[in-house]
């Protein structure tokens, strides 16, 4: 069973601070981490490999520094990685990113399953998984909370749905996006760290990827951010004063006004 895990570099959330003057987010680019949701996808892939054999490849699109995260993934059980990188890929929205990743999939060889995290914590779009599946022409299941079995060219999964869940059997190859807490991601072992350092990480540029550059990066992105702003708030919250009884009366009054 060959599995591809898509990972994204995101800013470490603890670093998110608003600049009081400019109201923009101040981040330290050095503190980038693997999107936490993707670590569950990686662990799931490694567990499936341990159960069914095969190979786990990690795939990302990003700046050259992302190679570090792919090596980290190898130290946690992946066998190799592919990084799609180059100026032509920069500024990509989800359509252009999923297209670039579909080219990366072609570089990893045959696969049975692609695993992604539920979403990235910086963008929150949760669009890459289904878009990538569509580019590849394979089925997908989002919000997978458990992989029940793999047999007869199908995988049976539990999908969290409307507070309950569905059991869905899907033909391979397929793409799944997994929820957090589907497992407990492992720490790298000493031997793993060594494997990570020595791992073969393919860095694929635009030429090797065979990309149609009208479909990559900013040029290939239909959407444009035209404005970002901090949500308008009534500068300060209105304080409801007094002891518990007075505060409760104040709240009751506001409830009556609002509803």
């Amino acid at each position: 069973m060959n599995i591809i895990v898509c990972i994204k570099q995101v800013p470490s959330t603890n670093e998110v601070n608003l600049d009081p003057v400019t109201k923009t987010i101040i981040r330290d680019g050095k503190q980038s981490v693997t999107n936490p949701f993707d670590t569950f996808a990686l662990e799931q892939a490694v567990q499936l490999k341990e159960q069914y054999g095969g190979r786990v490849s990690v795939l990302s699109m990003g700046i050259p520094a992302v190679e570090r995260l792919l090596r980290d993934a190898v130290s946690r059980g992946a066998d190799g990685g592919v990084l799609i990188s180059g100026r032509e890929f920069a500024g990509a929205d989800t359509l252009a990113t999923s297209y670039a990743l579909s080219l990366g999939v072609a570089q990893t060889g045959d696969f049975d399953l692609i695993l992604c995290g539920k979403m990235a914590i910086d963008g929150d779009t949760a669009q890459i998984g289904p878009e990538l599946a569509e580019h590849l022409g394979i089925p997908h299941v989002t919000d997978v909370s458990k992989i029940i079995s793999v047999e007869d060219g199908s995988v049976t999964v539990e999908k969290s749905y409307n507070g309950g869940h569905q059991i869905i059997k899907v033909k391979l190859p397929a793409l799944l996006t997994v929820l957090k807490d589907i497992n407990m991601p492992r720490m790298p072992s000493i031997a793993g760290v060594r494997r990570g350092i020595e791992a073969d990480i393919k860095v694929i540029g635009v030429a090797e990827s065979g990309a149609d550059t009208s479909r990559t990066g900013l040029a290939g992105s239909p959407t444009q951010v035209v404005r970002t702003y901090t949500p308008e708030r009534n500068s300060e919250a209105v304080v409801i004063p007094g002891d518990a009884a007075e505060a409760a009366a104040g709240i009751a009054k506001i409830i009556a006004e609002v509803l």
Binding site: T24, T223, Q224, V225, V226, T228, Y229, T230, P231
Partner: peptide, 8 residues
């Protein structure tokens, strides 16, 4: 923390 306005 941030609102983004997007067009296509």
């Amino acid at each position: 923390n941030l609102m983004a306005t997007i067009v296509c």
